[in-house]
Each structure stands twice: as structure tokens, then as C-alpha cells.
Amino acid sequence: MPDALMLPGLFGLCYFAFAALALSVERHWRDLVESRRGPPRRTVFRLRLAALLCLAAALSVAVRHDGTGFGLLLWVLALSAAALAVAATVTWKTRSARGRAS
């Protein structure tokens, strides 16, 4: 993988993983997808599986590019960064959805 794509790829994969996890949480599903019911069981399972695969892919990208030590460290910190970004997105989306509703 080209150097320039490594970081965006890593953060993107982590971001997708946490976005999927966030959607599998009932509160966010209700706020962002369907307000009447929570996510169906099959969807939750698929979202979690997708998240797991994305996280594994991100780890492999980081370790392959930076070696075991730096790769692991970068992966762990990228997880936090991506989770924060997802939380910000959820807040922003929920806020604007509420703005429309009221």
C-alpha cells in the first residue's frame, strides 16, 4: 500500500468500525435510523461482524506499515481517535435530526 494512503486508510477503517458499532447501539439507531424500534438482531450481528473485520484490517495495515511495536501503538491510538470522531458525528447527526423534528 502506498505510504500516503496508509494513515487515511487506517483511520477510515477504524472510523467505519466504530460507526457500525454505534449503529448497533439501540439509542443511536433510534436517533439516526428508525425512531420507532431498535435495530433488528440480524442487523446488530452484521454490524458487529463488519466492525470486527474493519478493526482487524486496520491492525494489519498498521502493523504491516509500521512494524509490530509502532503499528500496535498507532492502532490503539487510532481506535481512540476514530471512536471520538464517531461520537462527534453521532452528536452532530442527532442534533440536526432533533432540530428538524422540533
Binding site: 458499532l21 447501539v25 439501540e26 471512536a83 461520537a87 452528536t91
Partner: peptide, 11 residues
């Protein structure tokens, strides 16, 4: 922890 994992109610 898990339910509130991504929750930030800024309003």
C-alpha cells in the same frame, strides 16, 4: 459504559 459509549448530548 457500552450503552453510553458514543453518547455526547451537547444540548
Amino acid at each position: 459504559i457500552f450503552k453510553d459509549f458514543f453518547t455526547f448530548r451537547s444540548w
